[in-house]
C-alpha cells in the first residue's frame, strides 16, 4: 500500500472561535498504479483532503501512513514525503516564479541536493511526460507561455521529483478543449507507466472517461468509494450533494424511461451509442 490514511480529521483555525472542520474521520488507501477521482461539491473538503494525502497538511486527528510508516510520527520522513507524493495545486501556474522554464523545474531537485546532470536528465523526462520539448522550452520565461503550457510546466515541476502518487487538483480548469484533452491524456500515460493518480474534479464526464475508482466526499466525509459505474448509478444522491451524472448516463436513463431496452449505466458517448444501436430493432426507419 502506498498511502493509507486512517480516521483523519482536519480543522482550519482549530481551537479558535472560527474553527472550521474541513475533513472528518476520513479513511482511504491508495495502491500502486490506481487512477482515483476525488469528487465532491464546491467546499466539500476535496482540496483539504488532497493536501492531507500529499503530506502538506498535518491532520488534527488520525494517521497518514506512507509505505507503512506514519509520516507525522517520524519527522525524518520529510524527504520521503517529497519523493512519494507530488501535489499540483489548483492553477499551479501561479506558483511559477523562476526566470526560465528549466530553473523552475529544477527548484525542488536542487533543494534536495541532486547534481546538475541528474537534474537535467530528470527535467528532460518531466517535460517530455507533459508533452513539451526540453530544448524548445528550457530557456523560455514561464510568463511568455500560454495558459495550457504554463500548467504543463508547473506539473513538470512536480513530476521531476518522480512521485509514485501524483495528486492533481482540478488540473483542467480554465484550459480549452485541446489543452484539456492533451493534459488528461498525458496524465493517463503517466498512470499507465505506473504512477498512481489522484484527480480532484467537478467534471463528471472527464471523471467517467479517465478514472478507475471514484471517491465521493461531501461536507468533509467520504460517503462513497467505488467504481465510476457504481457511483454514477445514483443520480438522486449525486444531485442532492450538488453533483450530476455524465451526459451519456443521463441520456441513457431517459431513453430507458421512454421504453428503450438499453442496459443501465452507460458512462461514455461511445458506450451509449453501442447501447442504442443494440436496440436497432426497436427503432422505426
Amino acid at each position: 500500500m502506498l498511502i493509507e490514511i486512517e480516521d483523519v480529521s482536519y480543522t482550519y483555525l482549530a481551537g479558535s472561535e472560527a474553527a472550521n472542520s474541513a475533513v472528518s474521520n476520513a479513511s482511504l488507501t491508495i495502491d500502486r498504479g490506481e487512477f482515483i477521482a476525488l469528487i465532491g461539491p464546491t467546499g466539500s473538503g476535496k482540496s483539504t483532503l488532497a493536501q492531507v494525502l500529499a503530506g502538506l497538511l498535518k491532520p488534527s486527528f488520525g494517521k497518514v501512513i506512507y509505505e507503512g510508516s506514519d509520516i507525522w510520527e517520524e519527522p525524518k520522513l520529510l524527504a520521503k514525503r517529497r519523493s512519494l507524493t507530488g501535489l499540483v495545486f489548483q492553477e499551479p501556474e501561479k506558483q511559477l516564479f523562476e526566470m526560465t522554464v528549466e530553473e523552475d523545474i529544477a527548484f525542488w531537485p536542487k533543494n534536495l541536493g541532486l547534481g546538475p546532470k541528474e537534474i537535467t536528465t530528470r527535467a528532460m523526462s518531466a517535460l517530455s511526460a507533459v508533452g513539451l520539448d526540453y530544448e524548445q522550452y528550457k530557456d523560455r520565461s514561464p510568463f511568455t507561455l500560454s495558459g495550457g503550457e504554463m500548467r504543463r510546466v508547473a506539473i513538470a515541476g512536480i513530476l521531476v521529483m518522480n512521485p509514485k502518487v501524483l495528486i492533481v487538483d482540478e488540473p483542467t480548469v480554465g484550459l480549452d478543449h485541446r489543452g484539456r484533452t492533451g493534459l488528461m491524456d498525458k496524465i493517463q500515460k503517466l498512470n499507465q507507466g505506473g504512477t498512481a493518480i489522484v484527480f480532484v474534479s467537478h467534471d463528471m464526464d472527464t471523471v467517467a472517461e479517465y478514472a478507475q475508482r471514484v471517491v465521493l466526499i461531501n461536507e468533509g466525509s467520504i460517503i462513497q468509494d467505488s467504481s465510476p459505474r457504481e457511483v454514477f448509478r445514483n443520480k438522486e444522491m449525486l444531485n442532492k450533494v450538488g453533483l450530476d451524472v455524465p451526459v451519456a448516463t443521463e441520456i441513457g436513463a431517459r431513453l430507458r424511461e421512454v421504453g428503450y431496452h438499453i442496459a443501465p449505466g452507460p458512462i461514455s458517448v461511445s458506450e451509449l451509442e453501442t447501447g442504442i444501436l443494440a436496440t436497432r430493432g426497436e427503432i422505426k426507419r
Partner: peptide
Amino acid sequence: LAKQGIPVSKDIITVEEVVKELCSLK
C-alpha cells in the same frame, strides 16, 4: 447515430432534443 443509419437530425444540441428525437422513432 446518423452515420450508423439511424434517422436522427444532425442539428441536435441538447440532451432534451436527442431524447425527444429517439422517442419519436420508438
